[in-house]
Write a protein that binds this DNA or RNA. Structure first.
Lengths: 181, 181
DNA sequence: CTCATGTTTCAAAAATTACTGAAAGTATCC
DNA sequence: GGATACTTTCAGTAATTTTTGAAACATGAG
């Protein structure tokens, strides 16, 4: 088997397995596959190419491409002389990470903070032992969620360089000698 | 409306909305609700109490309680004189966080590292420009995933105190004057 | 051993989520 | 304007995930 065959197999594997992983990240299989396809495409691709490569319908391709644009993980590119839209993915790994981090914070942490705040507030004046325990637990969860949200926010604003420096300095770790971002 | 009414409403709200949030965290609504219920229960509860409070079937209650035990978020308690099992949740917020962090790393990052490693390996000897770009991208993603995995691992081993100290020192933030964990 | 109490499993049903394909909508060109 | 090229929406369908309820399985007491 040639190196090229291996490469083609690896490419297909990457797309299909990245899709499978997507489901454990809370996004749909197809959205993750579209993202995978775009991340490894040297050229920007059209909706039709996306449909073709992944064997999916136009509606599906369209929805997922636009959702990725909504996340900020994919940009629309207009080519001169062409009427259709082309799409290209953000390829910088640190940027991808910060985008995903910010989005997950927004979807997963911020609503929890709101909920906890409300629950803490409404149990503030309760006298029973059970009530006090509830209020206390809501406060602890809220404090943590607020803290996590702030940490996420700060990290997501960091450039790759400073981030890696912090990680190295305080956790004593660095990915070999490589530049990641 | 009395403080007690507010408290009851807040409790119900917490359980139902924590459940809804659960779906955006990649766990089922019911598992999150069971977790919510246990987190705010001063006493350990039985499968039957769980079924009763959440109005769910025995199979469902059982499966989710055991899954939470599997995560390490819930412990089985045996009461003397009682034949049935009771369940109680870990209430320490930092411990909950480290458990969830470790589990998510295991499910969401580690499999990605494996995939990326394989794809990088199989595209190592490819000569084409497209192939080199693919190989390069796999390497960058892999380096980042390995790095993230290591950071997650390190944080999950930290006690609350040191963690908060790091966060404070390097990101300049602390949740007011509170102890969280 | 047998009954009573509790736990576990699992096939079928229900609920949720994702996908298709075609029709409607927009924009550009001639 | 009309024709063409492309984008967007969405009702219906398909796939997946979750839940039920009942049967099978355990365990301890008498």
């Amino acid at each position: 088997m040639s190196a090229t065959d291996d490469f083609i197999a690896a490419k297909d594997d990457f797309i299909s397995q990245w899709g499978a992983l997507g489901t454990s990240w809370g996004i749909s299989r197809t959205m993750a596959q579209v993202h995978a396809l775009l991340m490894i495409s040297p050229e920007s691709i059209s909706t039709d190419q996306c449909m073709e490569e992944l064997q999916i319908s136009r509606g599906n391709a369209h929805t997922n491409l636009k959702e990725l644009v909504g996340w900020g993980l994919v940009r629309i590119v207009v080519k001169k002389g062409e009427r259709k839209e082309f799409f290209e993915a953000e390829k910088d790994v640190w940027k991808i990470f910060t985008i995903v981090l910010r989005e997950r914070k927004r979807r997963e942490i911020d609503p929890a903070v709101e909920l906890l705040k409300g629950c803490a507030e409404r149990s503030k004046h309760v006298k029973s032992a059970e009530g006090k325990a509830f209020h206390e637990q809501m406060n602890e969860l809220q404090d943590f969620a607020v803290f996590a949200s702030a940490v996420g926010e700060t990290i997501s604003r960091l450039k790759y360089g400073p981030a890696i420096k912090y990680a190295d300095k305080f956790l004593g770790m660095l990915p070999k000698d490589k530049t990641i971002g």
